[in-house]
Design a protein around this nucleic acid. Structure first.
Lengths: 117, 117
DNA sequence: ACAAGTACCGAAAAAATTTTCGGTATATGA
DNA sequence: TCATATACCGAAAATTTTTTCGGTACTTGT
């Protein structure tokens, strides 16, 4: 799959539904970035997540727009301008992102010692 | 990757660390199953998650044992017997699983209408 | 004797995801 | 004029994950 998912989301069970919306490599980070600003332009998002290939962010942002987690506004200008912002549905996932972030911070050292080098 | 991860967990940021521990197709379901019993034998887990190929559960259980989320006891008996149980570290992830499960239940209908058929 | 169950594992195929590369188009600043 | 920036997209390569298949070894029940 490149820019469109064969099976958009996992409808087999509620837990996997939620997972399937955020379990790609960068989606949770994108949500975490978008929460911080009213809106962000693609180039800003790329700068905030420099380790992600720009193409992946494009693809994952598009999927998140399709899923309703993120809204996109295209301004009919040249050079082109567009903006992404988190939707109410996307915001409703933030408690989950928060819980994961908190857990990660609390247990980071253990896994660093365990797996680093 | 087949039965061992090249990069065991993602240490780039706390959020991705947490994600990397549970973001495979069945790990969150395994945790959700294991929470319900004191312990489970592999064959029981397979029966509870019939859609997952047994080999995948083996592999993912092994990774979860390596990561410390699940503990395994092997009984030196014949025919062989072993048991998996969730560890304290694994239990500390349950609030995240709960939040995802709750979100999934609350938003299931929307995505069913949106993507089914 | 033989099928079925128990737990496990390697190899390879299949599927999905991520990354890289090159390309479109227009505008601005040096 | 030329490099840079904006946003986007397709194709293919690379990587990772999931699945399938076949095999080990031993026991119980028919």
């Amino acid at each position: 799959m490149a820019y469109e998912k064969k099976i958009p989301v996992d409808l087999d069970c509620p837990l996997r539904l939620t997972m399937s919306l955020i379990d790609s490599k960068w989606k949770s980070c994108i949500l975490d970035e978008l929460r911080g600003s009213e809106s962000m332009r693609p180039s800003e998002i790329h700068k905030c997540l420099p380790e992600a290939a720009p193409r992946v962010l494009d693809i994952q942002l598009k999927q998140m727009v399709d899923d309703g987690l993120v809204a996109k506004t295209i301004f009919p200008e040249l050079p082109p301008r567009s903006e992404y912002r988190i939707t109410e549905l996307g915001k409703s996932l933030l408690p989950i992102i928060d819980a994961m972030l908190k857990w990660g911070v609390e247990h980071y050292d253990v896994f660093l010692k365990k797996y680093q080098k």
